[in-house]
Design a protein around this nucleic acid. Structure first.
Lengths: 195, 195
DNA sequence: ATTGAAAAGTTGACTCGTTGCACTTTTTAA
DNA sequence: TTAAAAAGTGCAACGAGTCAACTTTTCAAT
């Protein structure tokens, strides 16, 4: 039988994967995403280009390594919310508590800059987020006792996942998140006059 | 001065552009997007591959030829709405009147199938729509007498542009559009119990 | 009409992401 | 011990897209 914790094989596999991801991120941060070729990354990690693609589905995936957890956290925030808290408020709190700190973390500033300044990575990142739509929609529908494919729940999920994109570049990101959640909670109405 | 209607030069340019687009669409419909190479399209239109890229920014752009008008129509729907009609209602009407018929038109069925069944085209199409966000947001903000970069207006614009994607694959598309506009108008609330 | 500049098109070679194929190594099971 | 399955690797190739040099066409100003 296979040893439950790890086999030597899978340890080596994980090590190679990590070496590739590390080399890629380092080179990207040094010289920019478009200025680094897969072949250079492969050389830096001392593997062949084929091996890179055995571990990662494409060049963009090298940057977003273990972002599968986000989906789970999102679903968990809805399912495990405090008693009496509405689904929308749970999502609002999760976004405020989880996404804002990450974006503000100085360690990740270079990483965030890299993604923001590279169109291909921006696009990939957005597709990643929208990829969570179905899972989040299912969780919302479940908690709201609606049909599994309820359209309003699916739309809400999609809209919540657009929030990071929309809040980007705003001076006060916390206020931006609040504004959008207010819109989703109460509906849109023409704001007060500016004159 | 240049002849206002057309010069021979620009007519020829437009003709080759059209020849390329026609050849591309025909081949895509016949054999599928991924099974047709740029060189084949160039050959079919009797030009070189570089000429193809002189006219179109990329392979996906061959499919979405003159979809710049959509943006103008969208903005016009908001700006030229009937007196007393709210911005949101104007958008609702525009979506119902303009987008649903196009999708239902039997002539375009093959085209719609092509886009829906090709991941690269789906992604490109969505990025096209979201590209209209800024223009629509500006029009909404203007009509609502809000600041030009008002976040709620930007969010509303983005959400409206997501509607085609969300309504896709639903049996009753009209009802789907109405449901999402109701969500945007009044806010989300847990739907009635299904039991 | 002539001519000269600008635009359109062509060619061919090149880069880069990505994949298919063949080969080697490791692991597993008999 | 050994055969076969699985995993990893490298090479060569394909398609998208770019670049630079060159030819042709068009336009406009003499």
């Amino acid at each position: 039988m296979t040893t439950p914790p790890v086999g030597r094989r899978e340890r080596k596999k994980a090590a190679t994967r990590q070496a590739i991801a590390d080399a890629a991120l380092r080179l990207f941060l040094e010289r920019g995403y478009d200025q680094v070729s897969i072949r250079e990354i492969a050389d830096a990690a001392d593997v062949s280009t084929t091996t890179v693609f055995k571990h990662f589905s494409g060049k963009e995936a090298l940057v977003f390594d273990q972002d599968q957890e986000r989906e789970s956290e999102l679903v968990a925030a809805v399912r495990g919310r405090a008693a009496g808290q509405s689904v929308l408020d749970a999502l609002r709190q999760h976004v405020l508590d989880t996404w804002l700190p990450i974006a503000a973390h100085p360690q990740r500033a270079g990483f965030v800059d890299l993604v923001e300044s590279t169109p291909a990575l921006r696009a990939y990142s957005e597709r990643m987020w929208t990829g969570y739509t179905d899972a989040l929609a299912a969780a919302i529908a479940d908690e709201a006792r609606a049909d599994q494919d309820d359209l309003a729940c699916a739309a809400l999920a999609r809209f919540v996942l657009e929030i990071p994109t929309l809040a980007q570049g705003r001076e006060d990101r916390r206020a931006a998140v609040e504004t959008i959640f207010d819109l989703l909670t109460h509906g849109w109405e023409p704001p007060g006059d500016r004159s």
